[in-house]
């Protein structure tokens, strides 16, 4: 586990990620309440047993987060999902993966 700052996200992941060695599992979000959102970028290593590398940070819902799809193209799904389900803003990523106009707004956010 490694804590990172949201401003350094792109540099940290660019310097860490090598497509042949690391497998990007997903981006996970977890609402901790009081306008705090925990984000985890989860990676594993190919050909190594049970070895995770997790970058995590805590941000607020008002921030506009950077996208890592330039480095890892398949991250677009995870990012679009949390835009939909948590109502966070990610640069250049639109929602609408699961929800449409008549759906509840950001259903996984706790009300507190």
């Amino acid at each position: 586990m490694q804590e990172i700052k949201i401003e350094n996200l792109i540099e940290e992941i660019t310097s860490f990620y090598d497509p042949k060695l690391h497998h990007f599992v997903c981006l996970n979000a977890n609402d901790l309440g009081e306008n705090r959102l925990k984000l985890q970028w989860i990676f594993t290593f190919y050909n190594q047993e049970d070895n995770y590398q997790i970058f995590w940070t805590i941000c607020s819902f008002d921030e506009v987060l950077p996208t890592i799809t330039k480095i890892i193209p398949s991250a677009i799904m995870s990012e679009a999902e949390i835009v939909d389900l948590f109502g966070v803003q990610i640069k250049d990523i639109q929602g609408g993966l699961y929800l449409d106009e008549t759906s509840p707004i950001s259903p996984l956010r706790c009300s507190i």
Partner: peptide
């Protein structure tokens, strides 16, 4: 508190 499910097809779409 949180259950997050990531399925194979989900990350293979790109």
């Amino acid at each position: 508190q949180r259950v997050r499910i990531k399925t194979p097809t989900f990350s293979q779409i790109p």
